[in-house]
Design a protein around this nucleic acid. Structure first.
Lengths: 202, 202
DNA sequence: ACCTGAACACCGTTCAAGT
DNA sequence: ACCTGAACACCGTTCAAGT
């Protein structure tokens, strides 16, 4: 016999949180609003998540899972250049379709709201895979970070409304992807061994 | 005669806000904390800024002014490749020195907290200038956006703790800058090189 | 075992009243 | 002209009491 059967579930709470997130940004993800949406009073949520931060983290994990499912397939593409192109486009499309969710997972969240490293790593795996096949073992991580930084930087500036100098945004993205794919795909003669020692100047 | 002389100033309020921002992030920039810091009660701040959002916007403008002063000089560098390299490094150093302030200005702020377009444009001018000298009139904006997206994306992921796969972060940044400077500096067969006319120094 | 109302501390904001 | 205390609505969170 259960004296008070559960009137909702962790999944329902996360789903409600994500809906509120997409509709009104992170500020709209209020314990009261979430509780309302799942038909419960706010204090009840603390039986499932110890604090609002934990709920935000659960939402972030959910978002990263979706992102991974969207970009994952391209990591296995036969042609790594085509794969990288497709991945960049799919990544950007995900961000456009879920702007607030996207902003959430790439934000500098307080420690108690931060998704675990594995969630991020899983979403990053396809880029790393393609980078390795393009530039080889030696420079895998650097190349993956170059691509990721560009795509994320572009999309986040775009979503934040930071491109205000006119011009066609789609063209700029295509141009950037072209330059990167060409630069990474074609082994350049300029890729001489780098013995530049970086002296710290602090 | 002034029945109640001003006990603080707009500048002091903005400075207090920035100190709180750097110390504890945007959440720490409370009307109460700011008022406390300038020796006034919270309601008095509303004589200077109609709402917290307006104060945040003023702080953002202040931050962008600093950023502009840091990267501005490199826009005039004789060698655009060296200039771009220096600018990227200076930009990243600014972000490291002022992580919360940096995050603030590149965040997707609510409309009432957003700095005016001119502040962003002023900070972006040096990159655009260098991009134009590197790739020519035709592709200026695209190239500037490629560089900006990479540098911002890299720094923001770095600050958000999103690079969790190991490896040396400084090396990855240097690698990215190298690839971009080479790709943009060397006219690739893809784009037919026009007469590259030298820009005169001012 | 889960839910609830009541309560607390904190925040942004308003406003009538003070000088 | 600028400042203040008091007040309001709202939020995250706690907790004793209900079933």
């Amino acid at each position: 016999v259960s004296p008070a059967p559960a009137r909702t579930s962790d999944e329902a709470v996360v789903a409600a949180g994500r809906e509120l997130l997409e509709a009104g940004g992170l500020d709209a993800v209020t314990m009261l609003a979430v509780a309302d949406r799942v038909g419960v009073r706010a204090p009840s949520l603390y039986k499932r998540f110890p604090a609002r931060g934990a709920l935000i983290a659960a939402i972030a994990i959910d978002v990263l899972g979706d992102l991974e499912r969207r970009v994952g397939p391209f990591g296995e593409d036969e042609d790594p250049e085509a794969g990288l192109r497709s991945l960049a486009i799919a990544f950007r499309e995900f961000a456009h379709a879920n702007p607030h969710a996207y902003a959430l997972v790439f934000q500098d969240l307080p420690a108690d709201s931060r998704p675990p490293a594995e969630s991020l790593a899983a979403a990053a795996r396809p880029v790393v895979e393609l980078a390795q096949r393009l530039v080889g073992q030696e420079r895998t991580l650097e190349a993956a970070r170059l691509v990721t930084a560009f795509v994320h930087g572009f999309v986040s500036m775009e979503l934040a409304g930071a491109f205000r100098l006119g011009g066609n945004i789609d063209d700029a993205f295509a141009y950037g992807v072209d330059v990167l794919v060409n630069a990474l795909g074609t082994p350049r003669p300029a890729d001489r061994p780098r013995k530049r020692k970086r002296r710290r100047r602090k």
